[in-house]
Simulated scan of single mutants.
Amino acid sequence: MSAEFDREYWDDRYSALDDVWSGAANPVLVTETSDLTPGLALDIGCGEGADAIWLAGRGWQVTGVDFSAVALERAAARSRRAGRDPAAAVARAGRIDWQQHDFTSWAPPAGRFDLVTAQFMHLPSLRRTVFFRALADAVAPGGTLLIVGHDVSDVHATAHRMPDPDLFFSADEVAATLDPAQWRINVAESRTRTARGPDGSPSLAADAVVRASRL
């Protein structure tokens, strides 16, 4: 991991703001997993926990992993909030295991998860290829791999947030790491969404989206 995006960077970023992200589950996760039968899920780079909390609310048993202790503390607190239904909040929190790991030296257990999702998990290209293969290995037979990130075509539009072009990738790049004898590629595309530009005004962003099923 480049020094800019190491554990200290993310701890500082989360500590500086009450809310770094919106608190809502990533739209691609919602779209691509709503029809899946709940089982064991691994949420990589879970941040403040919105995706893991959403999955747990739908009945998944979730392992939420990040390398920022500050983010994980915030995520755990959010999952315990009662909201309108205290009993549901307790049940949801009990379905999530928050874990801190360094993605440059850790790999998840192989063949364990029915869903592995990594939303906007950006590593330098050489480490990214190795780590994405480790994520694929963690998917159980019949399970789903979902990887979403800033598309390489968006390198100039989002340079204010991620100045290193090597951190961007394409859907085809991710799909090419999956053995066709073991995987069926369901989705591999660049998908446009509305985001906020550097000045806060609406702008278009392109995401690389890959969803694959392990045979």
Rank of each mutant, 00 (worst) to 15 (best):
A93Y: 03
F67I: 07
A87M: 12
D151N: 05
D66V: 13
G111M: 08
W106C: 10
R80V: 13
F67H: 14
T144H: 05
F113W: 11
G64A: 15
P109I: 10
F67D: 06
R127P: 03
S125E: 12
F67L: 14
A77D: 10
A93H: 11
G47K: 03
V130M: 10
H101G: 02
Q61F: 09
R74D: 07
H101Y: 07
G83P: 11
G83K: 13
V148L: 01
L115M: 05
L72T: 03
L123I: 03
A82K: 14
L123N: 01
C46G: 11
G49E: 03
D85S: 15
W98R: 09
E73H: 12
T144V: 09
L135E: 02
I44H: 00
Q61L: 14
R112D: 04
F103R: 00
S125N: 13
F103I: 08
V148P: 02
I53A: 14
A140R: 14
A69I: 07
G49W: 05
A89M: 12
P141K: 05
D114F: 03
L145R: 00
A136M: 02
V70R: 13
S105A: 15
Q99Y: 06
F120S: 09
A75C: 11
A82E: 15
G57M: 02
A118F: 02
A140V: 05
A88I: 12
L123Y: 06
R92G: 02
S153V: 14
P108S: 06
A91Y: 12
V116M: 01
D154R: 07
L55I: 07
L126P: 02
V70W: 08
D154M: 07
R112T: 13
F120C: 07
G94R: 03
L126V: 14
P109L: 11
R92L: 07
G45L: 10
D97T: 15
L123G: 02
G47N: 09
R84P: 11
V139P: 01
R112L: 14
S68V: 11
G143W: 04
G49T: 07
I147T: 00
A77E: 12
V90M: 08
V148W: 00
A91W: 11
G45C: 12
R80F: 10
R78E: 06
W60E: 09
L135M: 13
A71Y: 05
G94E: 09
L123K: 02
V65K: 07
R74N: 11
F132G: 01
D66L: 14
D51E: 06
T63K: 07
S79H: 06
H150P: 01
R128W: 12
I96Q: 02
F120T: 04
A77H: 06
A50M: 08
C46I: 04
A87T: 15
A77Y: 01
A56E: 08
V62A: 04
A52I: 06
V65F: 09
R78Q: 12
G64I: 10
G45I: 09
A50S: 15
G64W: 11
P124Y: 05
G149K: 01
A93W: 05
G149H: 01
E48L: 09
A107R: 08
G64P: 11
D114S: 12
D51W: 04
A134W: 00
D66F: 13
L55Q: 06
I147W: 01
A69G: 15
A118R: 00
C46Q: 03
G111Y: 04
F120E: 03
V152L: 13
P124R: 08
H122Q: 03
I44R: 02
G49S: 09
L115Y: 03
D154G: 03
A75L: 09
